[in-house]
Amino acid sequence: MTALLTIIIVLFVAVAIWQLIKIFDLAQAGSENSLVATDKDNKINGYLMMGFLAFIYIITILSFWYLGDLPLMSNAASEHGPGLDNLMIISMIIIFIVQTVTQFILHYFAFKYRGEKGKKALFYADNNTLEFIWTIIPTIVLAGLIIYGLFTWNDIMNIDEDEDALVVELYAQQFNWKARYGGEDNVLGKANVRLIDLDKANILGVDEDDPNAQDDVIVTELHLPVGRPVLFKMRSQDVLHSAYMPHFRAQMNCVPGMVTQFAFTPTITTEEMRQNPDIIDKVKNINDLRVERRAEIEEAGQELNYEFDYLLICNKICGKSHYNMQMKIIVETQEEYDAWMKEQTTFANSLN
């Protein structure tokens, strides 16, 4: 596929050079009529328009066939994920249909109504019916998509701390993530960047005098119990970051000086997702590529075999190490989560 795209690009560059040469020759001809298109020129350009239309359709089909992830988006791991995927698929189908029809009309009309000697263009001032049709149809379609999107967004965001949601803070800083759990009371203690004290390992600026902060747990690996709503509170220490969890269809900006939030319910554990046929295929492809680059990977001190994990990544270009700002997410059963939490050190104990 890469070779085909390279050939196509080279072909287009050659055509562009050829056209530039023709323009230069015409400019040097000196005849006042040398720049006037003839019937032959118009006919050639008309057929070129149809040829380019065929090229657009062919390259679109090949892109779907070789590069498209079909069926589109099959690995949503949150309760709201399938609804969000449906909204995306509907939007893409509508865009694809509109693009296909409008491109055909554009190129076909350029071919059919190309200039010919003796032919006069029809002056068509206006048509209220046509104006109404191409105004009202996009209005109805866009209104439907917007309303559908608003309902989807409300379903995602209408989770609060009263619904037995696990409360977790995501703390962003160049170039890593920290997660803070509310502990046994599931209430996060107060925090402020002005309270950061590296001597006491208080790297998140948690208020040491707040009773709710004493049982908070700060970790560098995010664990989530499957089937339980999770409410994320997000802060940034330095610049604008974006907490992006692609498999959970979740993304929210982390803004310095304010707290943003996002909620979702995980539905598929990490182990279950690893058994997904699409994930198995992707992992195999990645490991095949890593074998080809064995020397580079071993030199970098990385493990050769890749294993799928959910990830929290930064989706804002926040600096030179932005590409590597990520945190592992493990979705597990409630029993496994409880066992893991018992092994963690509370904020109060970490200060001692």
Rank of each mutant, 00 (worst) to 15 (best):
G257N: 04
V193R: 14
K190I: 02
L26M: 14
D238P: 07
D155I: 07
L53C: 09
I313P: 01
A77S: 10
G149H: 05
R235P: 08
F55K: 01
D338I: 05
R228K: 12
D41P: 09
F132V: 10
K320G: 03
F132W: 14
A191M: 11
E271H: 06
P277V: 02
V331I: 06
P229N: 03
I89C: 11
T129A: 08
K316L: 07
M273N: 09
M88H: 13
D309Y: 06
N42A: 04
G182N: 08
T260D: 07
Y108K: 08
K282S: 10
Y57Q: 07
L351E: 06
M341R: 11
D39R: 01
K284Q: 06
I280G: 02
V255I: 14
D288L: 07
Q99S: 15
I94N: 05
W340F: 11
S31H: 06
V226C: 03
P256A: 03
K320Q: 13
K120R: 11
D278V: 12
E184R: 12
T102W: 02
K117P: 00
D41I: 06
T265V: 07
V219E: 00
Q334E: 15
I203K: 04
F248R: 05
G149P: 05
D41R: 06
D210N: 03
F347S: 00
K342S: 08
Q334A: 12
S63T: 09
I156P: 02
M245N: 08
I268S: 02
K190W: 11
T6M: 09
V331N: 01
L122D: 03
D160E: 11
T6G: 06
L11W: 09
M325G: 01
N202D: 04
D197M: 08
N128T: 10
K40A: 09
D338C: 05
L289Y: 10
H223S: 01
